[in-house]
């Protein structure tokens, strides 16, 4: 299915954090534990999907010269609505995410999807793309958050995994740890890609294709 492809591409092949290297700020700032990472991931998933739908719906009436301001207005509206709703019904999560919630407006990945995909596609594919990208973003956030929480705190989702024998290096849940973890993940992904390519080339050469 084509739609299924639109959805899955955001998970690994075009993962917003690790492949497109967009929205690294929240990936650094709110991934010190899995709970916050997941909360932020789901919020972004909601915003990106709604925005893709709205941009795709109005794509034919938006003047190309002012499309970016209009997209930003759309994103800002959705984020504000999300904030108001969270504040009213989930005040604790609202407090946890703090300032990063309002920063969702300027997350590059949301504007990028609006510009690259939603503005050129019909509503349903745009929605699926938003869901996929949001899921990929959430996956990335949870991966980083999980690694950082396990190494830096010895726990996962608040559940203590490693006993008192383990002395967590605090730096991993501080900002530098975010940089280091993201760097290592991207490095590992590139390395595995390179190895795969080399292997393919080798088998191709062995097959006598060159």
């Amino acid at each position: 299915m084509n739609l299924w492809k639109e959805f899955t591409k955001g998970l690994i092949a075009e993962n917003p954090i690790f492949r497109l290297a967009l929205s690294l700020c929240p990936a650094l700032a709110v991934t010190s534990n899995v709970y916050n990472a997941l909360g932020m991931g789901l919020t972004v998933m909601f915003v990106i999907t709604c925005n893709n739908i709205s941009v795709s719906t109005f794509r034919n009436v938006i003047h190309p010269k002012v499309r970016v301001p209009v997209y930003i207005i759309s994103i800002a509206t959705i984020v504000t609505v999300a904030m108001l709703v969270l504040e009213a019904f989930l005040p604790v999560l609202f407090k946890e995410l703090g300032i990063y919630l309002s920063l969702v407006v300027v997350f590059a990945i949301i504007l990028a999807r609006a510009e690259v995909f939603a503005a050129k596609n019909k509503v349903i594919p745009a929605m699926v793309d938003g869901l996929g990208m949001g899921a990929g973003f959430t996956l990335g956030m949870v991966t980083i958050g999980g690694i950082r929480e396990i190494i830096g705190n010895g726990s996962f989702f608040g559940y203590q995994l490693l006993g008192s024998w383990y002395h967590p290096p605090l730096i991993v849940i501080l900002a530098p740890g975010g940089f280091i973890v993201i760097g290592f993940i991207i490095g590992a992904m590139n390395l595995s890609e390179k190895r795969k390519k080399e292997k393919m080339e080798k088998t191709a050469a062995a097959g006598g294709n060159i």
Binding site: H167, P168, P169, L170, I171, V172, L174, P176
Partner: peptide
């Protein structure tokens, strides 16, 4: 610096 931040 790494251990300083890790085990203050």
């Amino acid at each position: 610096a790494f251990v300083m931040a890790s085990y203050p």
